[in-house]
Design a protein around this nucleic acid. Structure first.
Lengths: 193, 193
DNA sequence: CATCATATATGACGAGCATCATATTTCTGG
DNA sequence: CCAGAAATATGATGCTCGTCATATATGATG
C-alpha cells in the first residue's frame, strides 16, 4: 500500500516540477494539461487523480517556483557576511546565467506582469512570494545599517525584477546584458557595495 | 469608392484600438479573434480582410500601445523645464491612476514579461518601443546634467517598470500603493528632484 | 433608381482545451 | 503466484481557437 502512495507522490512531484518550469517559460496559461502530463511522462487522464483542477495545479506550481527563489536568496544572504551576501545576490540575480535560465529560479521577471490574470489561489500565493522576497531584502538592508531599509527593499526589488524582464525582452544577448549591467552597477553603487 | 476605403480604415483602427487595450489587460494571447471583433462591433469572419493573420495584428497592436506610451512620455518631458518634466513623469508613471489604467498608457509593466513568447514581429516592435522610452529618458538625464545618463536611464526605466508590475500584482490597493510610493521617493531622491 | 465594387456576415474546418467516466495496467500483501 | 487495491491509460464530452470559402449587405457611381 505504501508503495502505491509513494509512487503517486513521486508522480505528483514530477508534474509540479514540470509545471513550475514550463509555466515560468511559457506563462501560467501557456501549457495545457495534456502537454504537461506528457512532459511528466504520463497521459492526460490521470491528472485529476493528483489535482482537483488545473487552477489548483497553478497555485501549487507558484509555490514551487517561490521555493526555488527563496532557496536562491537564502543561499546568498544566509552566508556569514551580510554585505558580501547582498553583493553576490545582486550579481547573480542580474547575471547572464540567470537571464538564460528562465525556467529555473525566480518567477518574478517572467510572471509578475500576468499575476492580475492568474486564478485567485495562484495570485494569493504569488503575493506571498513577493512579500517573502521583499522581507528578506529588508532584513539584509537592516543588517548592513542602510537608511530606510523598507523603502530600499521595495525599490531594489522593483529594479531587479524590471531589469531582468526588460533584458529578456531583447533577443540580442549584448543588448540584454547591457541592461543587466547597468542595474547591477547602479544598485551596488547606491548601496555602497 | 473612397467612402468604402474610409469605412474600412475606420474599422481597422477600431479593431487595433480594442486589441491594444485588451491585450494590455489580458495578455497578447488573452483574447481571440472572435471576441476581439465583437468588441469592435463586428463579426469574426471579416477579420482577415483587415489583417493577414492574428500575429500581424499583435505586431500592429504593440505599435499602437507604444504610441500611447510615447505620447505620455513626451507630454511630460517636452514641457519647458527638463527637471520638472522628469519629476512629473515619474510621479505620473508611478501614480495610483496609472496603476488602475492597465488598458491605457504604457504596456511595459503588464507585457514585458511575456515578450519572449510573442510572435516575432510583435517582439521586434516591442524591443523598439522599449528603446524609444529608454532613449527619451537618457536625453532628459543629459538635459539635467546627470552623471552616467545612459546607465541612469536604463536603471530608472527598470525600476519604474518593475515597481508598477509588482504593485499591480497585489489586489489590496494600500499594499500596491506602498510599492509605488517607495519607488517614486527613491528615484526622485536619487536624482535630486 | 440600378449597378457594381467593396465591406462585413455566416458557417464550417481541424486542432487543442479542461474535465470526467471507465478500462487497464502495476504493484503489494497473503 | 494470486487476489485485490491503487495508479495510470483510453476515450469521449462540449467548448474555443485561428483560418478561410462563400454569401449577403452596404454605399458610391452612372
Amino acid at each position: 500500500m505504501s508503495g502505491h502512495i509513494q509512487r503517486k507522490a513521486q508522480s505528483r512531484a514530477r508534474i509540479l516540477e514540470e509545471a513550475a518550469g514550463t509555466m515560468r517559460e511559457h506563462g501560467h496559461d501557456g501549457i495545457g494539461v495534456a502537454a504537461l502530463m506528457k512532459q511528466a511522462g504520463l497521459t492526460h487522464g490521470g491528472f485529476y487523480a493528483h489535482f482537483p483542477s488545473r487552477d489548483d495545479l497553478v497555485a501549487h506550481a507558484v509555490d514551487r517556483m517561490f521555493a526555488d527563489c527563496t532557496a536562491l536568496v537564502s543561499h546568498h544572504l544566509d552566508a556569514g557576511d551580510p554585505r558580501g551576501g547582498l553583493r553576490s545576490l545582486i550579481d547573480y540575480y542580474l547575471s547572464d546565467e540567470a537571464r538564460r535560465g528562465i525556467s529555473e529560479g525566480c518567477p518574478l521577471p517572467s510572471l509578475t506582469g500576468s499575476v492580475p490574470r492568474m486564478p485567485s489561489g495562484a495570485r494569493r500565493r504569488f503575493e506571498a512570494g513577493i512579500d517573502g522576497f521583499r522581507a528578506s531584502l529588508e532584513r539584509a538592508f537592516k543588517a548592513i545599517g542602510a537608511a530606510e531599509p523598507a523603502l530600499m527593499a521595495s525599490s531594489t526589488l522593483s529594479e531587479m525584477v524590471g531589469a531582468m524582464a526588460l533584458a529578456r525582452a531583447f533577443e540580442d544577448d549584448d543588448r540584454a546584458n547591457l541592461i543587466l549591467e547597468a542595474s547591477r552597477e547602479q544598485i551596488k553603487t547606491r548601496l555602497g557595495l
